[in-house]
């Protein structure tokens, strides 16, 4: 009986889980976001993420709100959160700290001055 109840509960949950938003297909005129790391290649310790925001035709975008989240691909590691950097010529220098060597998944969210939002995920290997 407990098993049956559990299965019913789980079925209910499956129905309840909010569906993941569909991955938008970038429009041809969508802004571009590029990531570079300093130092490169990335190594454990203090670092900076150089995030470049441009329009589709290469014009720099300043004044965006940047937030960055770095997760290791292993479970059980605290993420690294950062963001809020000022820009110069569309380049945002975000202070960051690689807390462990290995594979990282960096998720960058940029809210543009016109309210549009760009989310980009980048996989990175960090040396220990």
């Amino acid at each position: 009986m407990p098993t049956l109840l559990t299965l019913l509960l789980l079925l209910t949950l499956v129905g309840c889980r909010e569906p993941a938003p569909p991955t938008p297909t970038p429009a041809p005129d969508a802004p571009r976001l590029r990531l570079a790391v300093d130092p490169d290649p990335a190594a454990v310790g203090d670092a900076a993420l150089l995030i470049t925001l441009t329009t589709f035709d290469g014009q720099p975008i300043d004044g965006a709100q940047i937030t960055v989240r770095g997760d290791m691909n292993h479970a059980g590691m605290q993420p690294v959160l950062s963001g809020g950097a000022e820009s110069e010529n569309g380049v945002y220098r975000v202070p960051f700290r690689w807390t462990m060597g290995g594979d990282w998944i960096v998720t960058i969210t940029a809210v543009l001055p016109d309210g549009r939002q760009i989310v980009k995920t980048v996989d990175l290997a960090v040396r220990s």
């Binding site: 462990m100 060597g101 594979d103 040396r127």
Partner: peptide
Amino acid sequence: LWVFGQPMEMRG
């Protein structure tokens, strides 16, 4: 001791 003295590096 040598293995656990190394920095851990989780890679795929």
